[in-house]
Amino acid sequence: MTIILNGEKKDVPDGITVFSLLEHLNIQHQRVAVERNEEIVKKSAYAETALKEGDALEVVSFMGGGDLSADCGMRIAE
């Protein structure tokens, strides 16, 4: 099935959970936050949250930034 991961289409196994997806992408759980269709997925719910075709997933982490000027980098997509 296809999901939208950080604004890009991505093919993933049917019914993959958030937990397995992060494992698959080699992303450490403790430093990220996940939003699915604009709803936050709590860390405690990663293992039981199975994704569906067309789900929009945002996986974010902390990056350098402060009184950030021109180069605002990536924004959360609409």
């Binding site: 950080n6 974010v60 990056m63």
Partner: peptide, 11 residues
């Protein structure tokens, strides 16, 4: 720190 998308391609 700012909050940004994780780079999925280049881990």
């Amino acid at each position: 720190v700012s909050v940004r998308r994780v780079n999925i391609i280049d881990r």
